[in-house]
Design a protein around this nucleic acid. Sequence first.
DNA 1: CGCAGTTGTGTTATTCTATTACGTATGCCA
DNA 2: TGGCATACGTAATAGAATAACACAACTGCG
Lengths: 135, 135
Amino acid sequence: MNERPELTRNQTLVLSKLEGQEGPLSAYQLLDLLRDDGFRAPLQVYRALDKLMRAGLVHRLESLNAFVACSGHAHAHAGDVTAFAICDQCGQVIELSDRLVSERLDEWVSKTGFKPTGAVLEFRGACAACQARAA
Amino acid sequence: MNERPELTRNQTLVLSKLEGQEGPLSAYQLLDLLRDDGFRAPLQVYRALDKLMRAGLVHRLESLNAFVACSGHAHAHAGDVTAFAICDQCGQVIELSDRLVSERLDEWVSKTGFKPTGAVLEFRGACAACQARAA
DNA sequence: CGCAGTTGTGTTATTCTATTACGTATGCCA
DNA sequence: TGGCATACGTAATAGAATAACACAACTGCG
Ligand SMILES: [Zn+2]
Ligand SMILES: [Zn+2]
Ligand SMILES: [Zn+2]
Ligand SMILES: [Zn+2]
């Protein structure tokens, strides 16, 4: 479905930093992590992120102004909305995708006459591990 | 439920600008609109917005970095999640709130063990009027 | 081959968004 | 009166994203 396109050096570097990370990273955090690899300006990061997002390999978290590597198994979300559960304690992000939920949400919103083309669905709270830790 | 607290002059000014507007406004747009009323610095806007958001009178749209006056009738959303349908053509924002949808979403997310305390739900697309106009 | 079109790059500067820090004023209540 | 909470004004700074310009590499094509 979403064949991994050829990635350039910069794109590969950005993606690998995101993949080697539990939680999301901001563009400027990425920049700092990539200084040793020759990155000098924000635009180098943003351009790579842009490509990676269009390829579906990276997601942007609007409520954090940060980016995370896609964790969808075999790249599940084809057309379905993707939701994110962001733990405010440990920063971990869980990616959720479900055909049925997508359809129900679409239906709900469409009732108003609105025709959605995209959605931002981000839940904030505590992941299972952090709840256990707090108990 | 959410009795309107006493609002100060600055808070009243910010709220009235938002209420007299079809779509959302950024903090800096608000600042510009309020120069004649003596506003000089972003912080004056942000502080007022902060209070207004905590009072539930204003919402922040994460995907736009902008703010909109609450349009909930009689202040419906007490505990329920609020979703926003943002028209990318005309900028109008529709506020959606539904007990059943809230519960279903909560259920869905909770299945992973995640315990949500808040949510950002923003749909992008075209409102009914703009679809008609495009047809 | 020569050349246009596309994509990626590097650099600088600028814009837009949000917060920190510091000082002041005001009302409330012990 | 003194302490506390809330709001205010201003300046400086941090953080996020884009605009503008120039160059390199690759592709497809006449
Ligand atoms: Zn994904
Ligand atoms: Zn956690
Ligand atoms: Zn509302
Ligand atoms: Zn519209």
